[in-house]
């Protein structure tokens, strides 16, 4: 599958004796959206963290855009600018203004000059609909705004794919939709995305593939129609009934 954007084959990972990822196979085509859900501790965050090398896997292979992810520091560095990441806790740099949060990567890692980096930053701030917050400090913004800044920060690196690790789990309910709206727009513009989330409304709207994980393995995997309409495994049925009952 040379045309896959992201390709995981037989990926295994252990924390000491604890087997967190068991034979994970996942193939994501360019422009595809994959939503991963599952109970906490199922390893879903670990999957995306392995894809951008925040964690190391011990067995199996991960290919990004045809190149294998190795432990060679150079390969790690080149991958980490290409695959953007949005964290549950935003992880904005609290000592830098919104604008400086956005320009840091492009200037230091990509060698852009300040004017170009700021132009790019303002462009993406406009896309996440907070163009007028550029000079504020992160803590002056609401949670939803902070997460949109974090998305804009990832976009400023002009990544080929974006990973989202429970991007709305730390947000107050009224702020979730403003973040999801931005994500839906990104999806519609053709961004390759892997999203760990329990927002099933979002999943139905954008997902090309649904993945359900439990205890470190992929239990169920398929297109959203069959995934929601006709889940095969009891574990997945139980999980879906729990999160969809409200």
């Amino acid at each position: 599958m040379a045309d896959s954007a992201i390709e995981l084959v037989g990926v295994n990972k252990w924390y000491g004796d604890f087997h967190v990822l068991k034979d994970i196979d996942l193939s994501v085509g360019a422009g595809e959206k994959v939503v991963i859900c599952g109970p906490s501790g199922s390893g879903k965050s670990t999957v995306v963290r392995c894809i951008n090398k925040l964690e190391e896997h011990q067995r199996g292979t991960i290919h990004l855009f045809g190149r294998e992810l190795t432990n060679d520091p150079k390969s790690v560095a080149s991958i980490q600018g290409e695959v953007g990441m949005v964290f549950q806790q935003f992880n904005l740099f609290p000592h830098l203004s919104v604008l400086d949060n956005l320009t840091l990567g492009p200037m230091k890692a990509r060698g852009l000059n300040r004017a170009d980096a700021e132009e790019r930053a303002r462009h993406y701030l406009t896309r996440v609909r907070i163009p007028d917050q550029a000079d504020k400090m992160p803590k002056q913004l609401s949670g939803g705004q902070q997460q949109r800044v974090a998305i804009a920060r990832s976009l400023c690196m002009e990544p080929k794919a974006l990973l989202f690790d429970e991007p709305t789990s730390a947000l107050d309910p009224e702020m979730i939709s403003e973040v999801l709206n931005v994500m839906v727009e990104l999806a519609q513009e053709g961004m390759t995305m892997i999203v760990v989330t329990h927002e099933m409304g979002f999943a139905r709207k954008v997902a090309d593939q649904m993945v359900f994980m439990d205890e470190g393995e992929i239990v169920e995997h398929g297109p959203p129609d069959t995934f929601f309409g006709n889940p095969k495994t009891a574990r997945c049925q139980k999980f879906l009934s729990q999160i969809l009952q409200h």
């Binding site: 925040l54 980490q80 600018g81 990441m85 840091l104 990567g105 890692a109 990832s154």
Partner: peptide, 9 residues
Amino acid sequence: EAAQTVGLN
């Protein structure tokens, strides 16, 4: 981690 994901060494 956030610094790494925006490409900083």
